[in-house]
Computed example of a mutant assay.
Amino acid sequence: MKLQGKVGIITGSASGIGKGMALAMAKEGAHIAIVDVNEEKGKETLAEINQYTEGMLFIKDISKQESAHEIVADVVKRFGKLDILVNNAHVSRQAPFMETTQELFDLSFGTGFYPTVHFMQAAYPELKKTKGKVINFASGAGIDGQVTQTSYAAAKEAIRGVSRVAANEWGPEGINVNLISPIALTPGVEQWRENAPELYEAMLNKIPLRRLGDPEQDIGRVAVFLASSDADYITGQTFMVDGGSIKLR
């Protein structure tokens, strides 16, 4: 029970990687606040979490800055503290570089980058009290410069930048800030596999371990590690949980 009694917030946690992390942390004893816009999926995930520990559900649009402060305040009111913040939610649309519009940039930064910043700022006073952990999300789209991913890559690399700054500024106060760059078999990827099996197989063959990660067992377990005391001496790092696809130097 590596996270016994800990309290965490995970954005975008009704399904996919977010759900995998929520379940992995709940099974280690953490109380988890699910934040998502999908009420049906959110309720299903909350019911699963409540089999192991006590959770909360917030159906909110986190592109609105006030949402972060409201959620943090409600979680602290319910559980008395905040130990873990995971900024996972992000929405973007693909387009070639020359077709990437301001609207596409606004969508990616408005749902990914800015909410990450807002939640970090809102959570900081509480994380300072608990010497807490922040886990943000990077992407191979930004690290490797994947085609048609301009707005997503830009927002993800911006998240990496502010995470490193926060790691340096908050380190003396005992707050750890790290990132995960994942590849996982999410519901969206499963749909893509059905619609484009040849492209899926081509992508799979580029992964040295020849499989996509499991949201709970692969991504979730790394998140548990980073949220636990086992990672107390790690900060400002990007963890490539991608089957060996990208090797950072």
Rank of each mutant, 00 (worst) to 15 (best):
N88I: 05
N88S: 10
V91C: 10
R93G: 08
R93N: 13
P96E: 08
P96T: 09
P96A: 14
F97G: 14
F97W: 15
M98L: 15
E99Q: 15
T101N: 12
T101M: 07
T101V: 11
Q102R: 14
Q102I: 14
Q102P: 07
Q102A: 10
E103A: 09
L104N: 07
S108D: 06
G110Q: 05
G112F: 02
G112N: 04
F113V: 02
F113C: 02
Y114P: 01
T116C: 04
V117Q: 02
V117R: 00
H118V: 01
F119K: 00
M120V: 04
Q121R: 13
P125C: 10
E126G: 05
E126A: 12
L127K: 00
K128R: 09
K128I: 10
K129Y: 13
K129Q: 15
K129N: 10
K129A: 13
T130S: 09
K131E: 12
K131A: 07
G132T: 07
K133L: 06
N136L: 10
N136E: 06
S139R: 06
S139Y: 06
G140T: 11
A141Y: 07
A141S: 15
I143N: 02
D144H: 14
G145A: 11
V147I: 11
T148P: 02
T148L: 13
T148D: 14
S151G: 11
Y152N: 05
A154K: 00
A154F: 01
A155V: 03
K156A: 06
R160E: 09
R160S: 07
R160T: 10
R164A: 04
V165Q: 09
V165M: 15
V165R: 08
N168A: 13
E169M: 07
W170H: 01
W170E: 01
P172S: 02
E173N: 15
E173M: 14
G174T: 03
G174W: 03
G174E: 03
N176I: 05
N176S: 08
V177S: 00
N178S: 14
L179W: 03
I180K: 01
I180M: 04
S181L: 01
S181V: 05
P182R: 07
P182S: 11
A184T: 03
A184H: 01
A184R: 01
L185D: 05
L185R: 07
L185H: 09
T186W: 07
G188Y: 09
G188T: 15
V189T: 02
E190R: 12
Q191N: 09
Q191R: 10
Q191K: 11
W192E: 08
R193S: 03
E194H: 13
N195W: 15
P197C: 05
P197K: 04
P197Q: 05
E198Q: 13
